[in-house]
């Protein structure tokens, strides 16, 4: 093009009349990493079912130990129909749902209060925390027979065990969260002349929310485990009892499908907590969004 030009106009010219060379480039991503999530998951699922099918249809595993995928699916549909048509399994599921809900509410109430007591007061930290840590290290399921002995074979003993297991992560999350307030924030509130209550409500608790929700999520998993363990060990009329009976009749497909529906219940509770977290701890979502990018 033009030969005699000052550098300044030359650069301007290039941008104006030459088509810019494409400098957009992409980071190299391996083929496997480029597969969308849904397809990757479906792929793994298909491989899993395939292996399962091969193992059972070739007679590598006894059908009593492991039914075929088809049998299991048939039973899943059967149980699903029973549940949706209000069959005999629905009341059992309802009992377990109630245990989980009551257990969780109880765990949240007790766990949060204890967490504030332990996280906010020096006395709580010194005098109560050591006991909580000691109990937390115990295998809490071992208390199930005690709860049955104290509260009977009804729903109460299961609620108690579920709450017992789920309380501790909530206490720990709340207490740790209250301690997470940094020195600057504390000093700032002090210079503003904030009362202890104001500091707790306007600073420490909001700051603790992410960790409180972590505790709630662990608790949500624990409450399911507690309710089902309670039903295994303490009888009753819940879903756990259905599983126990099916297993004792060597009805393995039934066991599998019951576990599936139970997992859906657990998943629903977990999703509920996650949803609440998104709404309450809205300022945390930016980091979540970053991870999704």
């Amino acid at each position: 093009m033009s030969e005699t030009k000052t550098p300044a106009t030359a650069t301007g010219e290039i941008a104006a009349d030459e088509t810019l060379e494409e400098t957009i480039w992409k980071e190299k991503v391996s083929l496997l990493d480029r597969i969308p999530r849904a397809i990757s998951m479906a792929f793994v699922f298909a491989v899993f079912i395939g292996l399962w099918h091969i193992a059972t249809s070739l007679g590598l595993v006894s059908p009593i130990i492991l039914p075929t995928p088809a049998e299991t699916l048939k039973d899943i549909i059967f149980v699903g129909k029973n549940l949706f048509s209000g069959g005999y399994m629905l009341p059992a599921l309802w009992i377990t749902i109630l245990e989980v809900i009551y257990g969780f509410i109880l765990a949240v109430a007790i766990g949060f209060s204890l967490g504030v007591l332990v996280g906010e007061t020096v006395f709580g930290e010194r005098a109560i925390m050591p006991y909580l840590v000691a109990i937390d290290t115990m295998p809490k399921v071992a208390f199930a027979p005690l709860f049955v002995a104290w509260l009977g074979f009804g729903i109460e003993s299961k609620v108690a065990l579920a709450a017992f297991i789920a309380t501790f992560p909530i206490v720990v999350g709340t207490a740790a969260g209250l301690h997470s307030a940094d020195e600057n924030a504390r000093m700032l509130f002090k210079t503003m002349g904030a009362t202890r209550m104001q500091t707790l409500l306007k600073m420490k608790l909001p700051m603790a929310l992410p960790q409180i929700f972590t505790g709630l999520k662990i608790g949500a998993v624990g409450v399911m485990a507690g309710a089902i363990t309670g039903e295994f060990l303490g009888g009753g009329k819940g879903f756990g009892e259905l599983i126990r009976v099916a297993a004792s009749q060597l009805n393995t497909p039934r066991v599998f499908s019951l576990i599936l529906y139970l997992s859906l219940l657990g998943l629903a509770l977990y999703a509920l907590v996650t949803w609440a977290q998104r709404r309450v701890v809205f300022w945390q979502k930016s980091t979540a969004a970053m991870n999704n990018d």
């Binding site: 600057n184 924030a185 000093m187 700032l188 503003m192 104001q198 306007k202 600073m203 909001p206 700051m207």
Partner: peptide, 25 residues
């Protein structure tokens, strides 16, 4: 007082952060 870190609270928007000392007092 002002410190090295801004220490704004993420659950309050800028305006709510600024009026926090008044809200507390």
């Amino acid at each position: 007082m002002m410190f090295q870190q801004a220490t704004l609270f993420p659950w309050r928007n800028t305006l709510e952060n600024i009026v926090l000392p008044i809200e507390i007092r």
